[in-house]
Simulated scan of single mutants.
Amino acid sequence: MARVTVWNEYRHERRSEVVADVYPDGIHAVIADALVQADHEVRTATLDEGPDHGLTEDVLDDTDVLTWWGHAAHDEVRDEVVERVRERVLDGMGLIVLHSAHYSKIFKRLMGTSCSLKWREAAERERLWTIEPSHPIADGIGESIELAETEMYGERFDVPAPDSLVFTSWFEGGETFRSGCCYRRGSGKVFYFRPGHETYPIYHDDDVRRVLRNAVDWAEPGDGPTPTFGNAEPVEDIDTSDDRTVH
């Protein structure tokens, strides 16, 4: 069981009837429900929860995996909070970046690129091909996931080459996209998962919900040794009398 914090802007749902019809209690509530079904310990946090956006030091210290959904208010996330999240990822916290959060401050900072892409809203069909079926995130998923209505994201996706690519999307309009990208940053794992536009019921889809649960299991910190850095004593017996150094 992982301790999961589900973070969401929670702006569209309060301002648009179209979005509220799909996610009346917020996108975060639907994602949280999917993770609770896997017996994870889940809390939610939103952009307008105080100056820390619900992501205080105590909350992050008590979080094994953070999921992030954002779209319209990336610039409103305080840099201090972004840096706090980045440090926790480097220390081992998992991060799952969803849909339009490709353009969030935290994802761009961890990737070191613009994270830009092509997009189109036309309620078109998407097929996510499982191209790494042995990966834990693909557990229980068939050869592909079919989504009847989605927003198109197209290449080029300006991110570093992923350590593992689990899903690749094809869209009805002809474009393709790397939709399931795994990275390691420091001691933490990062998974970018493309599906999730706010006006379509993507997070109600059983396969998408399974991917989210699998991703949390994959991103949860392990029990390996804690890495050490800096000046180190030798493991073997050596002559340390040579003290030539500029440090």
Rank of each mutant, 00 (worst) to 15 (best):
R156V: 13
E149G: 00
L117W: 12
W119F: 14
R156K: 08
T226E: 13
K105Q: 08
F107H: 10
R210Y: 01
I141R: 07
G112H: 01
Y192H: 12
A219R: 08
D206R: 15
I202R: 03
V211Y: 02
K105M: 03
G188E: 02
G230D: 13
E124Y: 07
T226R: 10
Y203W: 14
R120T: 14
P133V: 11
S164Y: 01
I131D: 07
S134I: 00
R109G: 14
E220G: 10
L147F: 02
G230F: 14
E132Q: 10
G188N: 01
G94E: 10
A161T: 15
P162Q: 01
E126W: 09
R156W: 09
G94R: 11
G112Y: 04
G154Y: 12
R194W: 00
D139L: 07
A123K: 13
V211D: 01
G92P: 10
E126T: 15
G180S: 10
S187K: 06
W170E: 15
R109V: 00
Y203M: 03
L165P: 10
F107A: 04
R209D: 02
L95A: 08
R210P: 04
A215L: 11
D158M: 13
T228F: 06
M152P: 00
D158F: 05
C115Y: 03
R184C: 08
D163A: 14
S116Y: 02
G142D: 03
D217P: 09
I141C: 09
T130Q: 09
R213D: 04
G186D: 03
R120I: 04
I96Q: 06
G112I: 03
H197K: 08
A122I: 07
R185H: 15
K108I: 00
G173F: 03
E151A: 09
P136Q: 10
F171T: 07
P225S: 06
A138Q: 01
G186T: 01
T168L: 12
D223T: 15
S134C: 00
I131V: 15
G173P: 04
Y200F: 14
G154W: 13
E143Q: 14
V211M: 04
S187E: 15
A138H: 04
P195C: 01
F177G: 03
P195R: 05
R120V: 08
A101F: 02
T150W: 00
P162W: 02
E132I: 00
C181W: 00
E124P: 01
Y192S: 08
R178Q: 15
P160A: 03
A123Y: 08
A122D: 13
P133Y: 13
E175N: 12
G188M: 05
S114W: 00
G92I: 09
L147I: 14
H135T: 12
